[in-house]
Amino acid sequence: MIGFIFRRLSAAIPTLILVSLFVFTLQKLLPGDPVLAMAGEERDPQVLEYLRDKYRLNDPIAMQYLHWVGDVLQGDFGRSMRTEQPVTQLLLSKLPVTLQLAAWSLMFAMLIGIPAGIIAAVRKGTRVDYGVNVLALSGISIPNFWLGLLLILLFAVKLQWLPASGFVPFSEDPLRNLQTMLMPAFVLGASLAGTLMRHTRSAMLEVLRSDYVRTARAKGLMPRVVILKHALRNALMPIVTLSTLLFGELLGGAVLTEQVFSLPGFGKMIVDAVFNRDYAVVQGVVLCVGIGFILLNLLADVLYRLINPRMRTSA
C-alpha cells in the first residue's frame, strides 16, 4: 500500500508542473494591466512603472514563471499585490473555511443523496421513485445563489434564527460557527445531493440485478440485510469516486455560494483576485487546489482498496 501511494505521488509531479504552467500563462492572456487595475483612480506614471518593475511584469513571461516556481519550491508563494499580505498566510486563513464548508456540504449531500438513491432504486418505477427523482432534479436545477437568497430571507430576515452571512471561526465560537455554516452547506449540499442520488440509484439498480443478490434473497435473508450489506457495499464504488471528486470541486471554492453568504473562502478569494489581476494570489490558490485534487484522487484509490478486497491484489 505504501509503495502504491508513493508511486501515485511521484506520478503527480508532472501533473502539477502542467497545472502551474497553465495557470501562469492563461492568466497572462487576460486583458487588462494588473498595475493599472490595482491603481484604480490613482495613476501616477512613475508609480505604475515602479510597481511593474517591482512585480517583474516587464520581464519575459518565461523568466517570470521560473522566478515564481523557484520561490514556490522554497515555500514562498509571494505576496498579494493588492494588500501585501503573504499568499501563504492568505491560503492558511481561507483553508479552514473552505474545508469546513466542503465537509459539511458533502455530509449534507451524502445524508440526503445516498439514502434517497437507495430508496429510489429499491422502489424503482413507483411514485416514490418519481418523487425522489423530481426532488433530485430540482436540487440540481435550482441556482445556488437563488436558493441561498431565499433561505436568507426566510431564516435570517423573517424568522431570525440564523445569521444572514459571514463567518465565525470554530475556535472563537463553536455554536455560532455551526450556525453560519448551516445555510451555505445546505445550499451546496442540496445541489450535490441530486447528483449523488442519481448515481447511487443507477449503481444500486445494477447491483440489485446481479446473481449474488438474487441468491442472497433466495436464501431468505431479510431484504434490509440484502440491500444494505450485500448490494450497497458493491454499489458504493462509483459513489466513493464521485464523492471525492465532488469534494475536490468544493475545495476549488463555491464561488456563488460564498458570495451570497459572504464566506471568506477560496472561491471568493480567487474571484476577487482574478478581477484585481492579483496574479500571485490566483496562482497560489489554483496550485493549492490542484494539490488538493491530486491528494483526493489518491484518497479515492485508497478507499477503493479498503472497500473492495479484490483490488488489493491487483496492484
Binding site: L149, I152, L153, A156, V157, Q160, P163, A164, S165, G166, Q259, V260, F261, S262
Partner: peptide, 14 residues
C-alpha cells in the same frame, strides 16, 4: 459586495 445581501444582513441584525 452584493447590495441585497448587505441589506439582508442589516435587517437580520447582523
Amino acid at each position: 459586495p452584493d447590495t441585497s445581501v448587505r441589506l439582508a444582513n442589516l435587517r437580520s441584525g447582523d
